[in-house]
Nucleic acid binder design. Structure first.
Lengths: 154, 154
DNA sequence: TAGGATATGTTATAACATAACATTTAGGAT
DNA sequence: ATCCTAAATGTTATGTTATAACATATCCTA
């Protein structure tokens, strides 16, 4: 499967990180990851299974697909959109700055998804509104639905 | 089905609002709503179906359940938690202040859910970080996972 | 190189959600 | 009052998402 240069950079970065941290990026996991890196939009688990079959001429069971997705999500390489049950590569992997709370703008018209970084002030505000309750956050993720710039001005 | 006084107040408020706005709160919808008002934790659609059967000795089909839930969610009386596929009554219906962006703190240990209001500063910050992209929001909802105060200090 | 941990294979099924079309009911117009 | 229409509900079937349970293979390490 052919990746563009920036896509290849993402894959390289993940490979390096796995080598460093001891996470096992097996052949199948790498193939799944490659599909997600190359995808132009978020994929459902079953989309992924179809792509896998089409691209690698090899079956991927639902069970395996979900296991791979769990692994990649756990590791922070991939995000799951709970509101649409889809998966997408983290778009901030090759940034240098500190990893932030992922925040997704999901267009309900064209289904495009943009991952934006949460701003510091916002994150602070969010956390303070929560700590008051004695609640401790566990990697929050924001999914915001609406219309993207294109669909707003057709 | 017996509701506590504050629960009854929620139901009354919704009945009044429907009478005012012309929304049709049919008998079945009211029964579903009553179950959700009385529930001590969020319910899945199929939880609701079981409760309905148990309480009203009458079948509720999946199709109907989802239709009722859609209606109640559309109307803003009920929220859906996308991360857990569960539904719960809006806990701010009998507040006087302006209705806010719903924000949920979901405990991954005891599964308790707390609905807190988003603070003004946070909402502003959120919106400004989004408008920059030309994106227009459509009733955002935040679901934040972590551990509640009880589970933090057992 | 044996043994345990991690990953994957396999089968089945659970859990969540909606399509499509028929029928009933509520409420306004005449 | 009763007809008409839109909204709601009934019914059947099926699509979609996700996991349980147990078998087998592979990898690392002592």
């Amino acid at each position: 499967m052919n990746l563009s240069k920036p896509q290849q950079a993402v894959l390289n970065k993940i490979e390096t990180e796995c080598a460093t941290t001891g996470l096992r990026l097996t052949a199948k996991r790498q193939k799944v990851l490659t599909i997600l890196i190359a995808a132009t939009s978020p994929l459902s688990a079953y989309d992924l299974i179809s792509s896998y079959q089409a691209i690698y001429a090899d079956a991927l069971s639902a069970m395996s697909a979900y296991r791979m997705l769990d692994f990649l999500t756990e590791a922070g390489f991939v995000h799951k959109l709970s509101t649409t049950n889809q998966y997408l590569i983290c778009s901030h992997l090759t940034c240098d700055h500190e990893h932030e709370v992922p925040q997704f703008l999901i267009c309900d018209s064209c289904h495009d998804v943009q991952e934006i970084g949460i701003r510091k002030g916002l994150q602070d505000e969010l956390e303070s509104s929560i700590e008051k309750s004695g609640f401790s956050l566990n990697s929050p993720q924001l999914e915001l639905h609406g219309l993207c710039a294109n669909c707003n001005n057709p």
